[in-house]
Nucleic acid binder design. Structure first.
Lengths: 295, 295
DNA sequence: TGGATTTATAGATAAAAGCTATAAATTTAC
DNA sequence: GTAAATTTATAGCTTTTATCTATAAATCCA
């Protein structure tokens, strides 16, 4: 049911006359007659009870009238929006985020807004590798801030900063008496780690393997925030990116760096190479790179 | 921009290939090529940067991709809804109301729901004569409950009940000492009456004219509720339908019948003769008639 | 009853959407 | 490095769809 036909139908319904509607639509009355007839045939129902003496929409006709009006309106809105973009560009781009970026991103967005005050930025939470790839591929996001390198020809993954992973202990935990800890200290502790598919999990488990330790995994989580809460509730020990501790508003848990095995995680900016990027998005990429080069 | 083309475009954007999209769409690749080209021409912008080596949506292309998906979805929803109605009827009808009907309508709707438990009823407030006519004419409402007779060939206006108008006085008003009042008692009182275009205003002013009195109009209102509030605040005297007093939840104002001039207002059910009425709507009409025949 | 008005039908024409064949550019395979 | 394969675009033809004019059939109105 093409938009043009829906519009024909709406005008007929409003004029309550094929002849008058045809005039307004600048087509002949027989054309309109057969257009409506074809609609009815392809929908396999009667829309208008019509004869020389009466004009009446059927039940289905009344529904289609209401809905077609909305659809036509929607269609017009899309065309208008397209015209606006043609004239002045989208002024909008979207970023997929891993949760830890919310620690420094607001600050960076303030800088961004100074340079691009009229640009709307959409922020979407995109946690796992699959989500990142899918969101980029479906044009949902222009950029992704992620800590997983994406091994794909079409996607560029540029490292922007590295941060240490630190161990996080509940309040009054005996290990917090030392300023540094060793991986082996954690062997007996109930351990909290990201669920399968997350880069941090792989990195942490690999480090434990290398020093010959099997951690006592008690909880698997998706978000570091969850891990942090569990630790605060004395349910175990975890390892989280240092920025979480640095920027955390209030945290009753205690972080300690790991001396023997410097665990790092890299945060990347990922985007599709072949895709159109709004100039604002390129500006954002530069800003992110500058922001972390200072360190 | 017809739905079919929007769909072509969406599939091309998702497949990132004309050849593959053409396969999925069961059309030839050249047809698809020229279809997209025609879209671009009619929108007067480039949607896809394409060659044998690259495929990239333009800024406008990305926007259209997002919006076209929504529009296609909307379109599918309309067709689905139409199919549902074809199978099992709308199960929905809408009534335009004058405010005073809210006094007895809830009770009646309870009866209605016993007979038609699955029917959704939409209630719209439609105050003035113009609004009633327009809402009926635009297929917004199936029925109108109104107190104004509609003089129009296409619209049937069936009287359903009559009610007295009673005078309404503030608390402790001296005239409330009598059980009945005369129109002439109201001559000096600050009077509140509906604004121009409302039937009740005409009826009241006509009555005053017939007994040779010019009322001292201080306020013109649209809703009896407003008038009632004004009276309660001691800002004047008004005349309202008796049902307002009968069914009112709490009312500090006092009503008195008028002895010398029995002012009546008739409430009508109005609907378009030539229009399709769902069986539920006919059921509702019968119910309304029965409801008031008892009196 | 006769002219005017309404929708439907018939048949012809114009516009569009689609097809096949093939060219041009580029990548992949050997 | 060259040949084969792949991708999009163009040309020309065919089919389908949309629209037109002319007119029939039903109904209304004077």
């Amino acid at each position: 049911m093409e938009i043009r036909y829906l519009n024909y139908f709406v005008v007929v319904a409003e004029k309550r006359s094929f002849t008058k509607a045809a005039e307004q639509l600048h087509i002949s009355q027989p054309s309109l007659s057969s257009a409506i007839k074809n609609m009815e045939k392809s929908l396999d129902l009667k829309l208008i009870e019509r004869s020389t003496k009466e004009f009446r929409l059927t039940e289905e006709g009344e529904l289609l009238y209401q809905e077609a009006k909305k659809l036509i309106r929607h269609h017009e809105n899309v065309l208008n929006e397209l015209e606006n973009v043609k004239k002045s560009g989208v002024g909008e781009f979207s970023i997929g985020l891993i949760e830890s970026s919310m620690l420094w991103l607001p600050d960076l967005l303030n800088q961004f807004k100074e340079n691009f005050p009229h640009v709307k930025v959409k922020l979407l939470e995109v946690l796992s590798l699959e989500e990142v790839e899918e969101a980029l591929w479906n044009y949902e996001i222009h950029l992704a801030i992620t800590n997983q390198f994406i091994h794909r020809e079409e996607i560029e993954t540029a490292p922007v900063y590295r941060e240490r992973l630190v161990a996080l202990f509940p309040p009054q935990h005996p290990l917090t008496e030392k300023p540094y800890i060793h991986l082996s200290d954690l062997a007996e502790e109930p351990f909290i780690v990201s669920r399968e598919g997350f880069q941090t999990r792989e990195d942490i488990l690999k480090a434990f393997r290398e020093v010959g330790i099997v951690p006592n995994i008690q909880f698997e989580i998706e978000r570091f925030e969850t891990a942090t809460r569990l630790v605060e509730e004395n349910l175990g020990v975890t390892m989280i990116p240092e920025n979480y501790v640095k920027y955390a508003k209030s945290l009753s848990a205690n972080a300690r760096p790991i001396q023997d095995f410097p665990l790092l995680r890299t945060v990347y900016l990922a985007f599709e190479k072949n895709r159109y990027l709004p100039p604002t998005a390129s500006g954002f990429i530069d800003l992110v790179k500058n922001y972390f080069e200072k360190d």
